[in-house]
């Protein structure tokens, strides 16, 4: 029965299983899991992918133990503000970034191991009314924050020891930035979405705001997840957690939109929708890796889409042990992490 419950249900005709359960970890001390992620960790000359789990008050680092088993290495206790999310830092080793706060992010901290003091520690990177944050390659962190008067968009370059090496201010758009996404193929470009439903593009080297392009009125409150520069176009993966169901498409989970940055014009390239008969809506906070999207639905299932084909690929149904609450892609193409509020995390190979 258990193996049957863990087998993903495929709704796209006969094909090989696209999700295979690899391993499971259970944080018995976790009262309410808020996020899960992975981090590359190097110790004693060995570099491996480790799992990071977060509850409101603590963040734990897990190392792989053979076979298909995980052991907790260390837990950082962060008592003053609740943890809201883990902020993945792509291609970065031995650094975990977390956002803490009440309803909004109030501070961003780095969690790390210090060889100088032979101890695990954490350091403060930024405080403020932070609206959005993203980790980029080469240990860079971009965030938007608001005061009563103005919006600040800032990139911080992080040192290996958890300090901030350099700070670059980016020109803010008029409306509040709600999400950021790095651009594959252009290291110095960054895109964001705004509360006014626009996509904005920055030059990270100069801080210039290069373009603001409206997404359109059909899909409000767009959130950007990934972007790809190809053939003179900017392809942006958007989710629309507040979009209404339409007759033509149903409930849209993700869209790939092609923007021409020269003219600001755009066309929708692909829709990824909840299939008919799949109950529930997407819970905000889906995750995209390469060209695959994952999201938790209000039914407690995790759904996976091939975003370039617009195909619903697999679903992890909620089991008797409880609803899925978290869905995150593991680093290095290691698969999909699905988590429950009780601290259970399953790693699936995709």
């Amino acid at each position: 029965d258990v193996s049957e419950q863990l087998t993903p249900v495929l709704l796209d005709g006969p094909r090989e299983e696209s999700l295979q359960l690899v391993s499971e970890l259970q944080d018995s001390s976790c009262s309410c899991a808020v996020d899960v992620s992975t981090v590359w960790w190097e110790a004693a000359g060995c570099r491996e992918l480790r799992v990071v789990t977060a509850s409101e008050s603590a963040v734990s680092l897990w190392e792989p133990l053979a076979p298909a088993c995980w052991g907790k290495v260390y837990t950082w206790h962060l008592g003053e503000m609740p943890v809201i999310q883990i902020v993945p830092l792509p291609d970065t080793c031995n650094l975990v970034c977390v956002a803490l706060g009440e309803l909004e992010i109030g501070e961003i901290r780095l969690l790390l191991y210090s060889s100088e003091t032979d101890s695990f520690k954490h350091s403060l990177v930024k405080t403020g009314n932070i609206k959005a944050v993203v980790g980029l390659k080469d240990r860079r962190l971009v965030s938007s924050s608001r005061t009563m008067q103005e919006q600040q968009v800032e990139m911080v370059s992080l040192s290996e020891t958890g300090g901030s090496k350099d700070r670059q201010t980016l020109m803010p758009p008029e409306d509040t930035v709600t999400a950021f996404a790095e651009v594959e193929g252009l290291r110095e470009a960054l895109v964001g979405t705004t509360a006014g439903n626009s996509v904005v593009v920055w030059n990270l080297k100069t801080g210039q705001l290069l373009r603001k392009m409206h997404v359109g009125y059909s899909y409000p409150a767009s959130i950007c997840h990934r972007a790809y520069s190809d053939s003179g176009l900017l392809f942006v993966v958007l989710s629309h957690p507040l979009a209404k169901e339409s007759e033509s498409c149903g409930s849209p989970a993700f869209r790939v939109v092609a923007f021409n940055p020269c003219t600001g014009r755009s066309v929708g390239v692909m829709f990824s929708c909840l299939p008919p008969g799949c109950a529930g809506r997407q819970v905000p906070g889906g995750d995209v890796w390469d060209a695959v999207g994952a999201a938790v639905l209000t039914s407690g299932a995790v759904a996976v889409w091939d975003l370039l084909r617009g195909q619903f690929v697999a679903v992890l149904p909620p089991g008797p042990a409880g609803h899925w609450a978290l869905a995150r892609w593991a680093g290095g193409g290691a698969g999909l992490l699905a988590g429950r509020r009780d601290g259970t995390v399953h790693l699936y190979r995709y």
Binding site: E188, S231, A258, C262, T263
Partner: peptide, 23 residues
């Protein structure tokens, strides 16, 4: 996509916009 939908496309859009945009 075609130029009728999106207008003239430039492979060097990032460099061109960086030259045109205010510093």
């Amino acid at each position: 996509c075609s130029e009728s939908d999106l207008g003239p496309i430039s492979l060097n859009w990032f460099e061109e916009l960086s030259t045109e945009a205010p510093p």
